[in-house]
């Protein structure tokens, strides 16, 4: 794992990628620190991080687009898979390397609250909890990015898809707000979801009865639930969608809380997507 980690880290800094990422992140954090803390005189560094959240949606795909897709294109993955190194340590090494690059600007920005403290009263606890939370949120976004990179054929595709997905996660709260929370919306939403699952089942297995069965059972269950217990469906689809809103989990940190639920949520997302990536890679070997 350490070998992969070192190699990945080196490849970030062999080219421009690592430096550009760090420079861009520092510039953005710097500009917002000036705007929020100096001009508007807020002593809370977590407000700065709240404002720069959106920009990280833009640049995390840059960090993760190469990781798996480039190995596949250059066929260097064969070297990794024929070596006595397990898939999970390959993926974890790659994840940690990307997280390290992500952590560099945050580490530097750790000095900012201290700097602000010279001019007023700063709540260091909320500021540093905010930075830690930001690191975890970044980790979750990186894990998602690496997973999508493992699915994509080229790094450009990987970047675009990751960007779209992270943007979707970012906009999820406002998207769900547009949906009414009635039982009918939920029933229709879940029915559409089951239709999608049925289509995917057909795509992977080419088994018409199985796919049709999945679709019919799912949609039937939704219809039955809507007829019999509509109360259960009220707002559930919105809740389900909102659980995908990775970035709004950071809100609690902005409010100055160190919410363990958010921490657990981010760590779960990271673990889950590393697991998905490992499965994708293993599946490629089986296909």
């Amino acid at each position: 794992m350490l070998v992969i980690y070192k190699k990945e880290l080196k490849s970030y800094f062999n080219g421009m990628m690592g430096y550009v990422f760090i420079a861009f992140a520092l510039a953005v954090i710097g500009v917002y620190t000036v705007a929020v803390s100096f001009l508007q005189s807020y002593p809370n560094f977590e407000y700065v991080l709240d404002s720069v959240r959106f920009l990280f949606v833009l640049i995390i795909p840059v960090l993760t687009m190469r990781t798996m897709a480039e190995e596949k294109r250059q066929r260097t993955d064969q070297l990794l898979y024929s070596s006595p190194v397990s898939t999970i340590s390959i993926i974890t090494g790659k994840f940690l390397a990307a997280l390290t690059v992500f952590a560099v600007p945050l580490l530097i920005s750790c000095a900012y609250p201290v700097l602000l403290g010279r001019f007023g009263i700063v709540n260091y606890k909320t500021a540093y909890a905010g930075i830690l939370g930001f690191l975890l949120m970044g980790g979750a976004a990186i894990a998602i990015g690496i997973f999508l990179s493992a699915l994509a054929e080229s790094q450009m595709v990987s970047a675009v898809v990751s960007f779209a997905c992270l943007l979707g996660c970012y906009l999820m709260p406002s998207l769900t707000n547009m949906l009414s929370s009635s039982a009918l919306t939920s029933a229709l939403g879940f029915a559409a979801l089951f239709l999608l699952v049925a289509w995917m089942t057909y795509n992977t297995t080419r088994n018409v009865p199985l796919a049709a069965g999945v679709g019919v059972v799912g949609i039937g269950a939704m219809a039955a639930l809507y007829m019999l217990k509509p109360a259960w469906l009220e707002g559930t689809f919105n809740t389900a969608l909102n659980s995908l809103a990775v970035f709004s989990r950071y809100d609690t940190f902005v409010y100055g809380m160190f919410d363990l639920r958010s921490v657990v949520y981010f760590v779960t997302i990271i673990a889950l997507f590393i697991f998905f990536t490992v499965q994708t890679v293993e599946k490629r070997r089986w296909a």
Partner: peptide, 17 residues
């Protein structure tokens, strides 16, 4: 895998190393 040295059809080289 510890017993194997493998050169695939297309050598798995990292071009920028």
């Amino acid at each position: 895998k510890k017993c194997i040295g493998y050169l695939p059809e297309q050598p798995p080289l990292y071009m920028d190393m």
